[in-house]
Design a protein around this nucleic acid. Structure first.
Lengths: 224, 224
DNA sequence: GCGTAATTTAATGTATACGTTATCGCATAC
DNA sequence: GTATGCGATAACGTATACATTAAATTACGC
């Protein structure tokens, strides 16, 4: 099987490790880290670290600041806004394309499943499993749109706001409305209603954006 | 002045050089190039070449295939379609945001200038200078939208289709209609007509996409 | 004491060395 | 003639060495 060497190269390992460390908060937003530090931490030389940080910089997770180390990016409210505007636009497009795809109920099964999972998670107020089903829903939506470049951008931006979402997950009200929107979107896609799917998802994302920003302001978070 | 060291680092130089070589066709689409070859060609060691190729891979201009060298990406009609769908969507959004910006005539001067430059280029049928003014127009449009992440994506995608545009520039009919659309878009932005700006630019891009695809099919280009 | 120049330190950028391993050629078996 | 396996080659991944230079520190003049 052995896809190729890059799966196991130290550079690839460094990319994934550093990503995990960022998402887990072990490399906190706003902190600086020298190449040496990272190299030692991951038990490798600077070479793969350098290659990995360049890749992660291209992905917008950190910036390389010579002699200051790499800085894990923080997100201001404006950053969040920028990202959400693009996400809203592209995911709405994805919703429209998914509807245009004229998929059979069979093919839409995973999407429906995630909607139902979200609903049952809500009934028992399990936010974590709701969030995980929500992620599956959005991933599946993007997959159905069938545009790999669009998918890459969306995935990348989701990575960038992951921290913020995790942070607000337990601060926000139970996403009851969100769930209704998901089901409505599923139905629009199922009946091939491109315009409708677009519109529904647009509003869905707008609501999500507003909720997020409102919470961050309420809690007084300027950066995340 | 001296922004910072990265401006002059060999890695940065390699990124820019390789980009140029790709755009100029010296590194032709579909061809493979070993790290050694590139290193020798650019008179540097493999280290900066490796870092540069990783960055360019993240930008979607090439893929790194261990032991086969880096492959300069070709674009199939489907790729082109994927890219144009995203470009259309994001630039339309940009047009809407630019209109929402309520800019003064003064602030819109560069945009207007590029429209006029396109018009005068067309009168003398100078396609090269038309293309350059067209690029300025689109750049300015994106700048006015004021979303740096959106700008980055658009710029990146434009890079990816640059070859295709250059290729068709002299094959397409004189872009008379395109010019009318540019002026109409300028006016929509000037009067703050967000919806109108969106709609106009959407159609503009759709037309461009169709023209491009039609030419490529006509000429029988499967890959570029 | 305070500001500036000289010195030291250390982080980076780059080259190079080297071990690993995919790939290719060739020999051998069938 | 084709297939299988072995050895040579070379490209890559990674570590390391070293030169460069920004930043920190110290020394110095005032």
């Amino acid at each position: 099987m052995q896809e190729n060497d890059r799966q196991t190269s130290r550079t690839q390992l460094a990319v994934e490790s550093i990503r995990s460390l960022i998402f887990s908060g072990d490399l906190a937003a706003g902190t600086d880290h020298l190449e040496n530090e990272l190299a030692e931490r991951l038990s490798m030389s600077r070479t793969p670290i350098r290659e990995a940080t360049r890749v992660l910089e291209a992905q917008g997770l950190l910036v390389v600041r010579p002699r200051k180390g790499v800085r894990i990016l923080t997100l201001s409210a404006e950053d969040m806004d920028e990202i959400y505007v693009v996400l809203t636009e592209l995911e709405s497009l994805a919703a429209g394309l998914a509807a245009r795809g004229k998929y059979t109920a069979d093919q839409l099964q995973p999407l429906l499943q995630s909607v139902e999972d979200m609903e049952s998670s809500l009934e028992v107020e399990d936010r974590e499993s709701w969030a995980s089903a929500d992620e599956r829903f959005h991933d599946e939506l993007v997959r159905l749109a069938g545009n790999s470049r669009m998918a890459a951008i969306i995935s990348n931006f989701n990575d960038q706001v992951r921290r913020a979402r995790a942070f607000t997950l337990h601060l926000r009200p139970l996403p009851l409305q969100s769930n209704e929107e998901h089901r409505a979107l599923y139905e629009a896609i199922a009946r091939g209603d491109e315009k409708g799917a677009r519109r529904i998802h647009w509003r869905h994302r707008e609501n999500a954006r507003k909720t997020l920003i409102a919470i961050l302001e309420e809690v007084g978070m300027k950066h995340l």
